[in-house]
């Protein structure tokens, strides 16, 4: 396909779109260079003893990659679609290049596996240990994180509604809730393990306690987020508490509730994983991380962390999607 070269005037009129073709050519070159380096660094004569000229090439590749990223980041794409592609492409390329550097440095300099395994080894380990990883995922995420997150957040929202109904509770619980939100709640993990045993029940308990307060505090804040004018309007309709809640205050609290749900998704994963450091049956992501670290098989630890990272991102991403659908009206999402 031959892209017709835009006339200089037109390119100027479109902004800095003229930078894009050059950057794309550079991108192809850098990619080719990276692929070559990836192949070369695993050759026996290079791995662990890469000579100076190889590192020089890598530095050159780095500079070239920076130039390409710089060009792409500053380019003003001609269409909104192209801009979306660029906005996605730049960070992806950046991340890919970081992983490339990780691989090259660990393999080329012969970094011992017990210090920092290369991504290729982590990937291989991940592919090999899929059944184990899946079991750990089931134990930690499906049995502890998700039930605990749902229970803790739901309880927090429910108590927030109660606080809304009973002003005494609000005045009494809110300062405590705000205070507790700043505490290292993860510390209750050993107590919960003692109370509820080694299995998933104690992890659920930890997650419930950790997610309860953010849900409570955010929901209460959200319930007072509706404007005075809107509340006067409901009053002029002589609307009762339930109607006002349903028609006005819950909808306007939704951005706050989703904020809590998103914060809680991360907290829940952290809570369940760290609670497993205090004792589990021979299963679970936190258990695997702590034991494999003890056995110095860091590739397995990294594989587990990769699973945790993907889980966290997907969990968060799904919530963000739901938020976008529910609070489409919020100024940050509006499209005319």
């Amino acid at each position: 396909m031959s892209a017709p070269a835009p006339s200089p005037d037109l390119a100027r009129a479109r902004g800095r779109a003229d930078g894009i073709p050059a950057a794309l050519v550079g991108l192809v070159a850098v990619t080719a260079g990276c692929l070559w380096a990836l192949g070369a660094v695993h050759r026996p004569d290079l791995a662990g003893q890469a000579p100076a000229w190889f590192w020089g090439t890598i530095v050159a590749l780095w500079l070239a990659a920076w130039w390409v990223t710089d060009r792409l980041a500053k380019a003003v794409p001609p269409t909104p679609g192209a801009r979306r592609v660029l906005d996605l492409m730049v960070p992806l390329l950046f991340g890919a290049f970081l992983i490339f550097l990780w691989e090259i440095v660990t393999v080329g300099a012969g970094v011992p596996m017990v210090l920092m395994p290369p991504p290729s080894a982590i990937g291989a380990r991940l592919a090999q240990s899929l059944p184990t990883l899946a079991e750990d995922f089931g134990q930690t995420v499906l049995r502890a994180v998700i039930p605990g997150w749902a229970l803790g957040s739901g309880l927090g929202i429910a108590i927030a509604l109660l606080c809304d109904r009973v002003p005494f509770l609000r005045r009494g619980l809110m300062p405590i809730g705000n205070f507790v939100s700043a505490l290292p709640m993860i510390g209750i993990a050993p107590i919960m393990v003692m109370w509820f045993g080694f299995d998933w029940q104690s992890k659920v308990a930890v997650v419930v306690v950790m997610t309860f307060f953010p849900a409570l505090v955010n929901t209460v804040a959200g319930l007072s987020a509706s404007g005075a004018l809107e509340r006067d309007l409901m009053r002029s309709y002589a609307a009762d508490w339930a109607t006002t809640l349903l028609k006005l205050r819950l909808p306007s609290a939704m951005p706050f509730v989703f904020n809590a749900l998103k914060i809680n998704s991360t907290l829940a994963l952290i809570g369940a994983i760290v609670a497993e450091f205090f004792g589990t049956p021979i299963l679970g992501m936190g258990f695997r991380i702590s034991t494999e670290v003890g056995r110095m098989s860091l590739d397995m630890v990294w594989a587990e962390i990769a699973v945790a990272a993907v889980t966290g991102s997907v969990f968060y991403g799904l919530l963000a999607l739901a938020e976008r659908r529910v609070t489409f009206w919020h100024p940050s999402y509006r499209r005319r």
């Binding site: 404007g227 004018l229 809107e230 006067d232 309007l233 002029s236 028609k247 006005l248 909808p251 609070t327 489409f328 009206w329 919020h330």
Partner: peptide
């Protein structure tokens, strides 16, 4: 009575 406020006060959702 019907009340019309200084601002429209329409619910954005």
């Amino acid at each position: 009575y019907g009340y019309v406020f200084q601002a429209p006060g329409l619910f954005p959702w």
